[in-house]
């Protein structure tokens, strides 16, 4: 479950004015809005990368407003994947577990499992340079899932991908959400993505969010 209560943010160009919304547990939520309306900022506040001026953020019924990003139990996939530039795909995916100093064989086995699930097993020894946009997003998704997050936050994960790759990733995201039973908040400006993926559709406009659950 993701719940925002009266989140306020002010920045040059836009204001988020007491934004409140909820994405129920194990639901795929899509947040839509035009470019520059504050979608990414809102996502960054849920991640803990920005602190709201006021308001509270709840993830899985826990108030995480003052928690650091690593304590929130989230998986985060930014727009271009933001892969670590010098690490091979295998190291990228295992990064979170390596920080926890988990045994090497446990990391290897979990990396292989996720690589198979996201269909990047053939890329494990490759560096990010030279991977296609779709491959980068698959690796970023596997990396985000390694810590078994309860909440997955996706910032325009399909932007700048061709339609066939988008369809592949849409199917992967749907399968991932169902298999892991996680709550997803997917930020996009595409109505197509919202229609295809969104079990809860949210619209950010003029600094506030309206909610719509498709019948």
């Amino acid at each position: 479950m993701i719940r925002l209560e009266n989140i306020t943010w002010k920045a040059p160009g836009f204001v988020l004015n007491e934004v409140s919304f909820e994405v129920p547990a194990s639901t795929y939520g899509v947040l839509m809005g035009k470019t520059g309306t504050g979608k990414t900022t809102l996502l960054e506040m849920i991640c803990g990368l920005r602190t709201p001026v006021s308001g509270r953020i709840f993830l899985v019924e826990v108030d995480v407003t003052s928690l650091s990003p690593g304590q929130r139990g989230i998986g985060y996939v930014p727009q271009d994947g933001a892969l670590f530039p010098t690490m091979a795909v295998r190291e990228q995916i295992g990064f979170g577990l390596r920080l926890q100093k988990q045994p090497a064989d446990a990391i290897l086995s979990r990396v292989s499992e996720l690589a198979e699930e996201t269909r990047v097993s053939h890329l494990l020894d490759r560096k990010p340079q030279g991977l296609s946009g779709g491959e980068k997003q698959r690796v970023a998704l596997a990396r985000a899932l390694i810590m078994r997050p309860k909440v997955l936050l996706l910032d325009e994960p399909l932007a700048s991908l061709d339609e066939d790759t988008q369809d592949d990733l849409i199917a992967l995201l749907q399968r991932t959400q169902q298999d892991h039973g996680i709550t997803v908040l997917h930020v996009t400006h595409s109505r197509r993505e919202a229609r295809t993926l969104g079990q809860v559709q949210l619209q950010l406009e003029n600094g506030s969010v309206s909610s719509h659950t498709p019948g």
Partner: peptide, 18 residues
């Protein structure tokens, strides 16, 4: 160098130093 990969590392439990 973009800051985004560092931010992703923070969400995976890294400290600022890590």
């Amino acid at each position: 160098l973009p800051a985004r990969p560092e931010e992703v590392a923070l969400t995976l439990g890294a400290t600022r130093w890590e």
